[in-house]
Amino acid sequence: METNEDKQAFEPKVVAFLCNWCSYAGADSAGISRLKSPANILPIRVMCSGRVSPEMILRAFRSGADGVMVLGCHIGDCHYIDANHRTVKRVTLLQNLLGYTGINPDRLVLDWVSSSEGPKFAKVTRKFVEKVRELGPMAEEMGKSLPASKINVLVEEVTG
């Protein structure tokens, strides 16, 4: 039985890919304005959110992240003009794919934070960490196995 205490004890690990031109500066601006953002965030600076390949996101999960954020410039403000157009398509499709394989798609989030949006940075990170805290550890989600139910019927159907 999970107690309230256990939930409290769980500190989610969140990897945040921050674009050099907007979101990383946005994180800075949050710091300078002394806005509280959670310490659970492990920031990784990338030159552009468009650089963040699905491989990188998946590896973050594989390496023990309970959640992954991709933050970039707003559409239209991208330093590389339209590179973040690819990001929105890629991350949306990856979120769906995670859902199809039984990984909670809410563990991956994409948002736009410009360099002046310190308060937004603080808000989205705080909100996401709370969300992941609610979802619980990724390892737990992946380690759980269901009792033989309709899954086995489906598996049998496939394997004959």
Binding site: G102, E141, I151, E157
Partner: peptide
């Protein structure tokens, strides 16, 4: 199978692909 699969819960999907 695709339609059948779409009715599965997240946990069941995870279990299915895990197997």
């Amino acid at each position: 199978m695709v339609a059948e699969y779409e009715n599965l819960s997240r946990e069941e999907r995870w279990d299915f692909w895990n197997q």
